[in-house]
């Protein structure tokens, strides 16, 4: 019997972690949310998979400054008919990733709507990142838009196909959430400082040391 679990060695110590954060991906249908998650989780790119129905859940642990940060990733459906269902996922999210497709203007125009939804339904502590998907095509214009969307902390150009910046998105989120969490614990009495604006482009995330499990 040679078919013992091959992953026995890999994920047994998955059970312990130092931090746990919820990340929610939103954005129009077909913008590549599922591809982004798939790439991050298993390092693969699948050209064709069906639209997400409702919401898909996955989990991954990353190591940041020697701390295990466990990310709960909720990949929501972009289709209109699931809108009210997916709204339920904003509220207790720690980080939200809005994805749009550079090659589809309509998905860019929807950004405003998505950010408003986040505004309406999430707590003020939520961390918002904008992802420009399908980056291998051309340069995006989200940076300009961000002047009007102060909530957006980062704009990242990615390609799930060519694996550009996918990990950076999640490592940035993880390290930023961890940093904030620690800060919050330190000035537990002090007022919560919400950093708004100052959206700058993240070409490569080298500010923190990270490693995938």
């Amino acid at each position: 019997m040679s078919n013992r679990d091959p992953d026995n060695l890999i994920s047994t110590n998955d059970e312990t972690f130092d931090y746990l954060f919820k990340i929610v991906l939103i954005g129009d249908c077909g913008t590549g949310k599922t591809c982004v998650v798939q790439r991050f989780r298993s390092g693969t790119f699948i050209e064709r998979h069906g639209n997400t129905i409702g919401v898909d859940f996955s989990m991954k642990t990353v190591l940041i400054d020697d701390k295990k940060v466990k990310l709960q990733i909720w990949d929501t459906a972009g289709q209109e008919r699931f809108r009210t269902i997916t709204q339920s996922y904003y509220r207790s999210a720690n980080g939200v990733v809005v994805v749009y497709d550079i090659t589809k203007r309509s998905t860019f125009l929807s950004l405003q709507h998505w950010v408003e939804e986040v505004r309406r339904y999430t707590s003020s502590h939520v961390l918002l990142i904008l992802v420009e998907s399908l980056r291998e095509v051309e340069k995006g214009e989200a940076e300009a838009l961000c002047q009007y969307l102060p909530e957006v902390l980062q704009v990242v150009e990615t390609s799930a196909k060519e694996n550009t910046n996918i990990d950076s998105v999640f490592f940035y989120l993880a390290s930023e959430l961890k940093r904030r969490h620690e800060n919050r614990q330190i000035n537990a009495n002090g007022d919560e400082v919400v950093r708004l604006g100052a959206s700058k482009k993240l070409s490569s995330c080298s500010s923190c040391s990270y490693k995938i499990f």
Binding site: D14, E15, V55, D56, F57, S58, M59, Q72
Partner: peptide, 14 residues
Amino acid sequence: ISNQNFFKEGSYIQ
């Protein structure tokens, strides 16, 4: 299946 996965990944079996 999604919730089962969540339960497992969230170390709730333990």
